[in-house]
Each structure stands twice: as structure tokens, then as C-alpha cells.
Design a protein around this nucleic acid. Structure first.
Lengths: 348, 348
DNA sequence: TTGAAAGCGCTACCAT
DNA sequence: ATGGTAGCGCTTTCAA
């Protein structure tokens, strides 16, 4: 008995007709009456090969007609590499500062012909997350915040990432680092308050999860600034809610503080309002300093003193990424990014 | 003359040794002494096939040793589909409201085993952007803001997207829609101001690009609320800068307005401060209403009246996506999402 | 100028 | 229980 292969029709005549298959370059080739190779040449403008104008037109027309869109995965599988820059999205709510930085970065990278993708990895932690990122075979990975370990870096590099850059308070073995100097933020605030004659400094510690990576170094920075003086530091855990701020303000005078570094401008505004409602004079009784230099700080009365944070420019980071991707050999670079500086207004 | 094919070594003995190739499942198979099929079965826990425990261990050990991470693109190429939900990142700076919504959505979708990817398409507009998204062959696309046309929807569906959902003020032919009722936001504010006895209502129009999609319907909503009354609407273009607000405030009395809907809480805060500095009494002389119900509105004095916006819950949207992906046949659903409601405080 | 075909990494069908 | 192998869509070398 011999068997003969027969073509099984892909679209059964059954009810509920399946949606038409997604057109491939082969479909375009068929419709244009050329080979797949020619389609590829035409659509990619391959300069090494000259295709006659009539053929080009036929191919373009066929592609248009079918609504053909190339398949990125297949392409990069074939190419053996991608131009994807992966950026895990931070799991903490981001402020306008970060938004702007990210947009700038994205713009700069797209100018360099990279594709930026933000990958949400909620529920994955540490090196587990790194594996998930590695599956996408990005050419570069930019990791904001902490949480990535040396193992994670290794996994990413092993899976072909040519650049791994962390943006956070501490460097990670094997990765390039943009050191966001949160310690310096606290330090600026501390130095400033000291210079203003304050000696009993409170430091707000946000209770929202995920912020420890930033609040701890900021606290340490204040400590460092006050070291060797008679000034003291008091930690003030605070949730971002009116009631919590009111409770803190109610026992404020019992704390005997004459200044507070409020972690950032938002907590500063929250606390400042609660203190004012409690009748605490600002800055006479208590000086308040925020951080981030957000617009609204200038709109408060008294105007909010703050620590201005110079984020890395998106262009610079994009250039770093590009440079490392082109020559991954170099030793990990570590860049101190900012430049925290106090902006003295009226609240301190 | 005859030629013989010789194997060119992939890793030349030249200086600057190329980085070791990234391990594939074939490498794992080789090291474990099994076939690629077996590797696949073991690592994916394929239930249809039983693999002996010793073999499983050998495979896992080999994978671990090599630092093997599967190649997502290859996998989904083979599978013919992916579980990727693509969400173009909005090009306008996002507020905490959106941040939170997005995190919730991401969480909910990851519970349903989807992978959420935010794709930055700066510099691409309209249907051009849609093509770029389509190249990634996402199973679903969630498009915030306006800007996607029917053509774009078609391209996405044609390339295999089973769900296309827009989140914006207006629906798009062919796509499911979560109608963010910006008109209703303006309407709530207008009705409220009217009820408070105001008759000459200013409406702030942000000058920042990309916000027209929201500011226009909000303006229309105010107009609609005031229709048929003797109240008037005055458009107030305003950039998000102190100086611009000061200039507007300086000519405030000449405008003869007794109320203003400030687009959102941030513009409201900006304008309110400028008006107060100018000595304009709030709410006596001029009532101010914002929108978004941000925390800081409650911290202002007078406390800011605002329009509370009920965003769709991330879980609901995730469920919609999942439902449509499983059965793409249904007609496009249109959901009115919120429920804008006035929160009356002290500024109006 | 164009076409045939190999092969990127993976999974699933069919043998053994 | 395990292996051989076809083929997902694409690009690119080689041949015609």
C-alpha cells in the first residue's frame, strides 16, 4: 500500500470561519510573482543587489495590498541579534522627573536606531526577573532602582546582552553603573540645615514599599553631614496619607526637632501642611527641606527649600549604551551622576 | 580545478576573542547527552510526555551549568502566537493616577499569564506607529490617548492582534473602546460652578503639546453644561510655568470672570497661587476647580475643589482583554468608563 | 536580475 | 521513555 501526501486546506470550510492568516513575505512573493528573496531585497532596500524598477513596484504593490508587516521576531532570529533596549519599568510610582528623563532617553536611543521597550516585571524579583528579561534577548538592559544582583547581570550577559547599565544608588558587579547619588541628596540637605543653625534634624522615611533603596542612602547622607557635630538625626517613618502626617504633627513638639528633611517634595508638602495646621511655625520653629525641585514647591507658602537633583541626560545615557554595545569589551564604567545641590527658598 | 568545502572555524584564533556564544537548547542537549526534544520536554514540563527522573535531573543540571535561557522570539515564532500585550507608552508626562492604573493592569494581566510590554514610539505618528507595533506581533494592543486611526486598527488586526483596545475620549472604528469621559469631567465642573451661582466661567487650555486630546473634550463638557443659560465660557490658554500664570493673573480682573475650571489639579494649583499673589480672593471673587483629585489638592488652602475621575480598574480591563483574546469574534465593545464626580471643597 | 535553499532556536508530531 | 525531524518567517549566500 502506498500513500500519497495531499495538501490539507488550511482554512476549513467549517462554520465560524477562522480569521484570515497573517500574510508573510511568501504571500507577497506569490502575489507579486517573484521569489521571497526578491521581496526581502525590495522591502529592505538591500543596496548590494539591484532590482529592476518594475519588479520593485510589483512587490510594493503586493505588500500594500496584503497589508504585509514584517515579523520582528523572525527577523531578529535570523539576524542573530536585535536592536532592542530593554528597560524594566520601576514598580514604584514615578514622578515627572523620571518621566521626562525616560522620554528623552527614548528619543535619543531611537535616533541611534534602537528600539526601547519597557518591560513590566511585577511579581518577579531579583535574578528571577533577570531571566525573564534575558528571554527577550535585548542588546542592552537598563535597570532603574536596585534589585539586580551580580547573578542577574551574569545571566543577561550570558544571553547576549552587550550592555547592562544600572541606574541606582549602588553599583553592581559586572554592570556599568550610573550612580544616582542619593547619599549626596541627604548630604546637601544636612549641610544646609546645619549651616542654618539647626541641630535637631528629623528625616522622613517613607513607609511605601520600594522606596527603601532611595530613602536609606538619603538618610545616611544626612547622618554623614552631621557627623562630628552636636547635631542629632531622628528617623520619622511616615506614610503618604493626611492622617499619618496629622498624627506625626500632633506629637511634633514632643520630638523637640528644629528641622526636617522630608525625603522629597511631596512628603515635604504633606508634612508641612500638617505642621502648619498644628500651628508649628515654618521656618521659625522647624525648617523643612524637600527634594526633587518639583514645580509645586515654588507655589507653596512659605516656598519650599529643596534639593535639586540633576538626572543624567537621556542623550548621555544613550551614548553610553551605544558605545558599550559597539565595544562590549571595556571594563564596566561607573559614572557619578549628579550634582545634588540645595535650592534655598523660604521654608528653611 | 575542483574545490572542497572546508569548515571555517566560527571563533577565529585572532586577538580579541569573541565572547562565548549564547547557549541554545542544542547545547544543553549535547551536554546532557539527550536530544533537543527531551530538553524541551523537561524544561517545559510537558505533561503529555513522561521523562525519567534521572534524565530530568541531567537536563536541569546541564541547563543550569550553561546558564541557558530560552529564546522567546524563537519560541513564539514556532508557536505561531505570543502572550504579549503591547501598550504604547503615552508621550505626555503621566500623573500618579495613570501610574497606578498601569501597575494594576500589569499585575492583573500577569495573573492571566500575559506579558505586558510598553513600547515607546516617539517620533512615529498614527498609522506609521501602528505598523511598528504590528511588527512585534502582540496578541493584544492597548492604546492610551488618541492618535490611532481605523487604518491603524486594521493593520494591527491584520497582523494577528486579537484585541485592540483604545483608552481615550473617542472610539475608533474596529477597536474596542474604553471611553474616558473627558467631556463628563468638564460637564461636572460646569454644572457645579453653575449651581454655585457662577456665570462667567474661564476654562484653562494647557499649551503643552499632546494634551489637546483631553483638554478639548473637557472644554466641550463645560460648554455643554452651560448651554441654555446666561453663563459664558472663556478659553484661557496657559503654559505650565509660573511666569505664564502670573501674566494671566495680572490681567485677571480685566477678564471679568467669576470662576475657572483649570483643566486639572496641577494647573489649578499653578493658577490659584498666581491669583492669590495678585490678591484675587478665592473663592469669593473667583471659584477654582481642578480635576484628578490628587492628594495635594487637599493640602492647599483653600482646599481645592476638583473633579474626581474614576479610571477603569486594571482588573476589569485585563478581563476585557482576556475575553476578547479568547473570542475575537464579537463586535467591538464600547465601555463608558467613568463616573466623573465633583468633589466640593473650599475653592469653589 | 532573480531564484533556490540553508538555517536562526524552538516545539510538537511521529517513530522507535 | 526518548530521538528524528519538519517548519514557524525571515535574510543572505551562491548559483543560474
Amino acid at each position: 500500500m502506498r500513500y500519497v501526501m495531499v495538501q490539507i486546506p488550511k482554512e476549513p470550510v467549517s462554520p465560524s470561519p477562522a480569521p484570515p492568516a497573517v500574510p508573510t513575505s511568501a504571500d507577497v512573493a506569490r502575489l507579486a510573482g517573484v521569489s521571497r528573496a526578491t521581496v526581502s531585497y525590495v522591502l529592505n532596500n538591500t543596496s548590494a543587489v539591484r532590482i529592476s524598477e518594475p519588479t520593485r513596484r510589483r512587490v510594493h504593490k503586493a505588500a500594500e495590498e496584503l497589508g504585509y508587516v514584517p515579523h520582528a521576531a523572525a527577523r531578529s532570529l535570523r539576524a542573530g541579534h536585535s536592536r532592542m533596549v530593554l528597560m524594566p519599568s520601576p514598580n514604584v510610582p514615578v514622578g515627572p522627573l523620571y518621566s521626562q528623563f525616560f522620554n528623552e532617553l527614548q528619543w535619543a536611543l531611537s535616533r541611534l536606531d534602537y528600539t526601547v521597550v519597557q518591560y513590566g516585571s511585577i511579581g518577579l524579583y531579583g535574578d528571577e526577573a533577570a531571566r525573564a528579561w534575558a528571554e527577550l534577548r535585548p542588546v542592552a538592559v537598563l535597570v532603574p532602582g536596585g534589585g539586580l544582583g551580580p547573578q542577574g547581570v551574569h545571566v543577561l550577559k550570558r544571553s547576549g546582552a552587550r550592555a547592562v547599565v544600572t541606574l541606582g544608588p549602588e553599583r553592581v558587579e559586572g554592570a556599568h553603573a550610573l550612580l544616582l547619588d542619593h547619599d549626596g541628596v541627604g548630604h546637601s540637605a544636612g549641610v544646609h540645615l546645619l549651616a542654618r543653625g539647626r541641630r535637631r534634624v528629623g528625616v522622613v522615611i517613607p513607609q511605601e514599599p520600594g522606596l527603601e533603596f532611595f530613602s536609606k542612602p538619603r538618610l545616611e547622607g544626612v547622618r554623614r553631614a552631621l557627623e562630628g557635630t552636636d547635631a542629632t538625626v531622628t528617623e520619622l517613618p511616615l506614610a503618604y496619607e493626611e492622617e499619618a502626617a496629622a498624627r506625626l504633627a500632633a506629637r511634633w513638639r514632643s520630638l523637640g526637632l528644629d528641622a526636617v528633611f522630608a525625603y522629597n517634595d511631596e512628603y515635604a508638602m504633606l508634612l508641612m501642611r500638617a505642621l502648619q495646621d498644628e500651628g508649628v511655625g515654618i521656618p521659625q520653629e522647624t525648617a523643612v527641606v524637600g527634594a526633587d525641585d518639583l514645580m509645586f514647591g515654588r507655589l507653596l507658602r512659605p516656598r519650599l527649600s529643596t534639593v535639586h537633583i540633576e538626572l543624567p541626560s537621556g542623550r548621555d545615557l544613550a551614548e553610553l549604551v551605544d558605545r558599550v554595545v559597539r565595544d562590549p569589551g571595556g571594563a564596566p564604567e561607573v559614572h557619578e551622576v549628579f550634582g545634588a545641590r540645595i535650592v534655598h527658598r523660604e521654608s528653611s
